[in-house]
């Protein structure tokens, strides 16, 4: 179809060019560091997410009863991440802790289980965005993309110090444009739809519940 390519580009080039306008200065309202956690929490709670601030050293201990109370029996974890290691170290000794399932093989080997057989997943994040109450995830070989998507409950760990104010600020400061990962994600709440009479319903395809643990130091 290279003919199509040549013809399309030729037509576009034959058109009278317009002058590219300058991009006016714009910056979203900055959110001072002291207010970020409150804004981040409020925005997430407004979209039906659960936010808990927990001491960084003790989050697995906090999470186990929280998930048990939701009836969670199996939790998908990434064994090679620091979060997966912390869970593996902490939970087996707890009688109330859910059973851990490792996402340690390609999806093809685990597909049936991932699609329908796991109650929750725990992932790390790169951080949060206070302005919109968003989690920033760059899935990795160790912590694959579907973890935050297939199980009905997604537990995300956010370091309080990694909550930034805006996406625009984050993209610029971290120079995302220099090296984008295969997949970068912003997650701002559980899966939802309002397609039926504008009535909000959760968990239509992705997680029905989003539990955010803000790790405090």
């Amino acid at each position: 179809m290279s003919d199509a390519r040549a013809r399309i580009l030729a037509r576009l080039r034959a058109a009278r060019p317009s002058i590219p306008p300058a991009r006016p200065d714009w910056a979203p309202p900055a959110i001072p560091p002291a207010e970020r956690l409150a804004r981040f929490t409020a925005m997430l709670e407004a979209v039906h997410a659960e936010v808990h601030a927990v001491p960084a050293a003790a989050w697995p201990a906090h999470l186990a009863p929280l998930l048990a109370a939701k009836g969670v029996r199996t939790v998908l974890a990434a064994p090679a991440t620091w979060a997966g290691k912390a869970l593996a170290a902490d939970w087996p000794s707890r009688p109330d802790a859910p059973h851990l399932v490792a996402y340690d093989q390609p999806v093809e080997a685990l597909k049936d289980r991932l699609v329908a057989g796991i109650d929750a997943a725990v992932t790390t994040t790169l951080g949060g965005i206070a302005e919109t109450g968003s989690l920033v995830l760059w899935p990795t070989p160790d912590e694959p993309r579907l973890m935050s998507l297939l199980p009905p409950i997604h537990v995300a760990l956010v370091d309080e110090a990694a909550i930034t104010d805006t996406l625009a600020g984050l993209v610029a400061a971290a120079n995302w444009a220099a090296a984008m990962p295969t997949n970068a994600l912003l997650i701002s709440g559980p899966s939802k739809t309002a397609d039926i009479e504008q009535t909000l319903a959760y968990g239509v395809h992705g997680p029905k519940e989003l539990v955010v643990l803000v790790l405090t130091r």
């Binding site: 899935p139 984008m180 295969t182 994600l185 912003l186 701002s188």
Partner: peptide, 15 residues
């Protein structure tokens, strides 16, 4: 809820 930025297919070591 989701902003999904895709910059390529699965890499050899990705699951």
């Amino acid at each position: 809820t989701y902003v999904n930025m895709i910059s390529g297919p699965r890499k050899p070591d990705e699951k």
